[in-house]
Nucleic acid binder design. Structure first.
Lengths: 220, 220
DNA sequence: CATATATCAATTGTAAGCATTTTACTGTAT
DNA sequence: ATACAGTAAAATGCTTACAATTGATATATG
C-alpha cells in the first residue's frame, strides 16, 4: 500500500483555541452583544469544556480589545460606538501603508500576480453586491501585502485590527465602495514601480476613506 | 484620628499579574535567555504560585511575542537577533508618528509643560550617561504623546512594542544619543505650531535613526 | 423610616489532581 | 557499533475542587 505523502500534519487543536475562535466569532458577528456580561461557567457549559480554557480565551480576547475584564468582578464585551471606527482605522492605515513600503524590496512576479487575481475576485464580489465576500477578499488582498513585507510585529497587530474591522462591518459601520477596486490597481502598479512614497499614501487613503464615508451616511 | 484622604485604593493584585510582570521582566533583562525552554512547574515553584497563573502569563507573553508556545511540546523564549531591531522600529515609528499627528487637536498647556520637563529630565540623564534612566524617561516622553492622542488601539500596541525596545536595550542593540534631545524639542515646538506633517516626519526619524546607529556600530 | 450591619449566594481567582502526549532512556537485534 | 523498539518518566492541557471577593438581601438599630 502506497503511503500517502501529503498526509495532513496532525495539527493538535486545543480546547483553548477552539474556545477562543468561537468566542471571537460570536463577538464579531454580534451573537455576544456589546456590553453583555460574560459568565465563565455558562460559556464553559455552552462550549462543553471546563472554565480554564474559557478563562484563558477571555484573557486573550481582552488583549485584543474584544472584552474588558474587571478583576474579581466581571467580564464584559466591549462597546462598539461610532467612535470605534475613528479610532481603529488610523493605526491600521498607518501599518498597512508601512507594509506597502516594506513590501517593495521583497516583491516577486508571483506576488504581483496573486495581488492582481485577488483584486479581480474583489471586484467581482463588489459588482455582485456580495459585500461580505468582498470584505473577506479585501482582507486577503491587504494581508498579502503584509505577508510580503515580512514583518512579524506588523502581522500580528494587523491581524488583530482586522478582526475589529470585521466586527464593525457586522455593525454596519464599514462600507465597501467600488473606489477600492481602482485604488487596489493603483497600489499594485505603484508597487511594481517601486514608488514607496505614493503607494504608502494611496494605501493610507484606501483605509481612511472609510471613515469619511461612514460619517457621510444619513444616520451618522 | 484623621482619616487619610489619599489612601491608596486597595488595588487587587492578582497572582497572574505578578507572574506576568516578573516573567516579562526576566525576559527583558535577560534573566530568562533567548531560546531558553520554559517549564511551567519550575516557574510556578520559583514564583511561589501554582501552574495556572504561570500558564496564563505565558499565553499573554506569547501574544506579545516574548515567548513562542508549541502546544503539547514546550514553550521557548523568543530569539533576539540583530534583525529584530530592523523589524521592530519601523512599525513603532509609524505608530508614534501617527500619535503625534493625532495628539495635536487634544493639546493642552499642561501637556506641553509636561513634555518639556520630561525632556529636560531626559537630557539630564543623557548628559550624565545614565543610559538606563534615559531609556525609561524617553519611554515616558513618547508615552505622553500617545496618551494625548487618546487612541486605545495605538496605546496597547505601542506599550507592547516598547517592551521589546527595552529588551533590545538590554541586548545592547539600542543606542541613545544626544540628538534625541534636540529632536524632542523640535517635536514639542511643532506640536505647538500644529504642524502635523513635519512633526510626524521628525517623530518617525527619531525612532528610525536608531536602526542606522545600530548598524554603524563596529560589531554590526 | 432610613441607615448601617450582618449573613448568604454567586462568581472569580487559585490550587491540586488526572489523563494524554511527548521525550528520554534502556535493551535488543542487526 | 548503530539503529530501532519498547518502556518509563516527565511535561502539557484540562478538569475538578477550593478559597477569597463581591453584591445582594435581610435584619437590626438609631
Amino acid at each position: 500500500m502506497p503511503i500517502p505523502t501529503n498526509h495532513a500534519k496532525t495539527i493538535r487543536v486545543t480546547a483553548k483555541e477552539n474556545a477562543f475562535n468561537q468566542l471571537q466569532q460570536w463577538i464579531i458577528d454580534g451573537t455576544l452583544q456589546a456590553g453583555e456580561k460574560l459568565n465563565d461557567t455558562e460559556l464553559a457549559i455552552a462550549l462543553g469544556v471546563s472554565r480554564t480554557p474559557i478563562r484563558e480565551s477571555l484573557q486573550l480576547l481582552e488583549v485584543q480589545g474584544f472584552v474588558k475584564m474587571f478583576p474579581g468582578k466581571a467580564t464584559q464585551v466591549t462597546e462598539v460606538d461610532r467612535n470605534s471606527i475613528t479610532e481603529l482605522l488610523p493605526p491600521l492605515a498607518a501599518l498597512q501603508a508601512l507594509s506597502a513600503e516594506l513590501a517593495i524590496p521583497h516583491l516577486t512576479d508571483e506576488a504581483i500576480a496573486l495581488l492582481d487575481s485577488t483584486n479581480e475576485r474583489f471586484a467581482e464580489a463588489v459588482y455582485t453586491k456580495d459585500y461580505f465576500s468582498a470584505l473577506k477578499i479585501d482582507e486577503e488582498f491587504h494581508r498579502i501585502v503584509v505577508d510580503i513585507a515580512n514583518n512579524s510585529y506588523i502581522l500580528s497587530m494587523v491581524e488583530s485590527l482586522q478582526a475589529h474591522v470585521r466586527r464593525l462591518f457586522f455593525h454596519n459601520s464599514i462600507v465597501l465602495t467600488e473606489q477600492s477596486i481602482e485604488e487596489h490597481r493603483q497600489i499594485i502598479q505603484l508597487l511594481q514601480e517601486r514608488d514607496a512614497l505614493t503607494v504608502a499614501a494611496i494605501m493610507r487613503n484606501n483605509w481612511l476613506r472609510a471613515i469619511d464615508e461612514f460619517h457621510s451616511l444619513p444616520s451618522n
